[in-house]
Design a protein around this nucleic acid. Sequence first.
DNA 1: CTGTTAGCGCCTTCAG
DNA 2: CTGAAGGCGCTAACAG
Lengths: 377, 377
Amino acid sequence: MKQPGGQEVTDRALVAPLVAVAPPRPGTPRTRNVTIKDIAREAEVSIASVSRVLNNVGRVSDATRARILSIAERLRYVPHEGARSLISNRTATIGMVLPDLHGEFFSELLRGADSAARALQMHLLVSTSHGDPDEAAAAIRSMRGRVDGLLLMSPHIDSNFVARHLSGELPVVLLNAPPGAAPHLVSIDDYVGAVTMVRHLAAAGRTRIAHIAGPVGNSDAAERLRGYRDALAHGADPALVFQGDFSVEAGRAAALAFTAVSPRPDAIFAANDMMAAGCMEALSELGVVIPDEIAIGGFDDVPLAHFLSPPLTTMRIDVARFGRTAIDRLVAAIAGQADMPPVEKIVPTLVIRQSCGHASNHSRTTSLQGAEHHEHA
Amino acid sequence: MKQPGGQEVTDRALVAPLVAVAPPRPGTPRTRNVTIKDIAREAEVSIASVSRVLNNVGRVSDATRARILSIAERLRYVPHEGARSLISNRTATIGMVLPDLHGEFFSELLRGADSAARALQMHLLVSTSHGDPDEAAAAIRSMRGRVDGLLLMSPHIDSNFVARHLSGELPVVLLNAPPGAAPHLVSIDDYVGAVTMVRHLAAAGRTRIAHIAGPVGNSDAAERLRGYRDALAHGADPALVFQGDFSVEAGRAAALAFTAVSPRPDAIFAANDMMAAGCMEALSELGVVIPDEIAIGGFDDVPLAHFLSPPLTTMRIDVARFGRTAIDRLVAAIAGQADMPPVEKIVPTLVIRQSCGHASNHSRTTSLQGAEHHEHA
DNA sequence: CTGTTAGCGCCTTCAG
DNA sequence: CTGAAGGCGCTAACAG
């Protein structure tokens, strides 16, 4: 399936990257849609009256109003949003640029965003950057003029990036970006989540708590690491921090590394569940009993966590709420609302399962905020 | 965060549901954007020349072309897509209406669609119908005029729905819809997948193969059930089909039901992995040994499948390819290409793990098409 | 090679 | 209460 103009697109993108102009696409134009003109003719009124009725502005007699509405319905009239946005300068669309779409996290994020957008009668234009700043910039550029605001999540976003590519023209909400990167931020409270988990492990009597860190440069990973360090009463032992990358394999590698240090850690806090899963799998193969010898804590509460053996204690993130909150805030920003704190945080919740070997099933000191969540296997 | 005009939206939606008119949203209009007029004035040429340069059509002297490009860049010109679509009758946008966004499946589908769309310089407008035909209709309506074509997946789509809400104006590709519902269909080959799995179980020596079916009315579930029935040499025993709903709980319930029938089944083919997971969990609690006493087969190959104990043998769907194929086909349809078979099928692949207890690790009779996939635990 | 002109569909004064 | 007319930003003839 060859695309018309495909080659040309690429060329122009290389030649004039700052001017985001889509190529002319030959293609067959669709059958003409019904316009207010058609309705006006049918109803024997002027297009002005039709416009007034359809927008519920100005005074129109009930008789003509009813006639116009019924004709619009019969003709299945749909306003041309392009023409409308030409005059109103708004598109009723929100752009979402994500680093990727792989995995449960993004689908939940989209789900929350979609529900909020739908409630506001807004549309969602979705795109991915694959973690590449240039791609993110390209996506942002290609969305300018077709969205009223932008929801942006990208690992490489800082105030410099914002200044270069988002020169204040468009309201933007940044997701999980470093503080100060933009006037509107919504973030997962990774720091509090990590502290909560470490305190939970400590409360279970663990004293040598190790950490499998996420990838360098990832701000979530950095915050979780910071929380881990701060929560440790006696400071962190460098030998107990393994540099991972959020992958199952990294978790396996960490298991090997930690079982080699002496004295062994008696607990491992993995920066995400996938690493926790890999770690547990490898530990089991090594004959290490969980949680008796080593307790495991994860982060994210992916569906998998419940099914590991033993089921994984982890921090749950209400990702859908994350998405909803971001959209609500963005729409408020678009509306010009100014009285908002610069950053909104979504606090994770501790989900206690069996991988941490708590004797009691409740400990009131582990959670900083939010309720704990207990689950029956 | 109160939304301006929010209440009004609801009212109008109730009053005139068939006329999809977005409400006037007061809000602060953004700072006026730079137009080709601005560029024309600055470059001391006519707007026509600017348009020609920006669209790479017609002849323009290299000197003025360079001048115009540089000015456009300096002014950070972005074309107004609304105005453009007003005249060209195209939006460079594809609408995607999905039943939901929950779970790995949809995120992969979006990922594939996004990658194909991005390659074609098209945007993706995403919306959900929550499985409700009315919501799907509303989403379709609200997208008319802002998309060039529609990707539509909804459990309740048949030719009747298509006739009512998609009266041929807009190119549409239906995902996993019943045959004949529309001129363009892309589907998972659930039937072949189910047959493959059942034959695999039979090849492992199982003779009483049960099935946990998906929800009634779901076409994937129906096709998997049909494949199950057709693949059984001696016909299906009604006592060995449990009516599930794709949930973990349904799988648990099925386990209870099947352990009660006599003689017990020696294999269970679940219509999806989540039911297989629930089933295995419940069976383990009942002391049933998998796969020795009962073999389990799933469908979908969710990430979880690998981590169940024992790891689940299942049918893998290349969901991203599904999404890509759908986009490619839709774009071809938009371009007016006609020489296509009405339906394209994505064939699932058998992923052999430990839940089916194959003695040999390879059996060449189980797969109808496509390669088998073996995995080391 | 370049400029002028007429709309695309819609909203919004301004007159009746 | 209603209609006529101008223009939003852009493209596509058609003249020069």
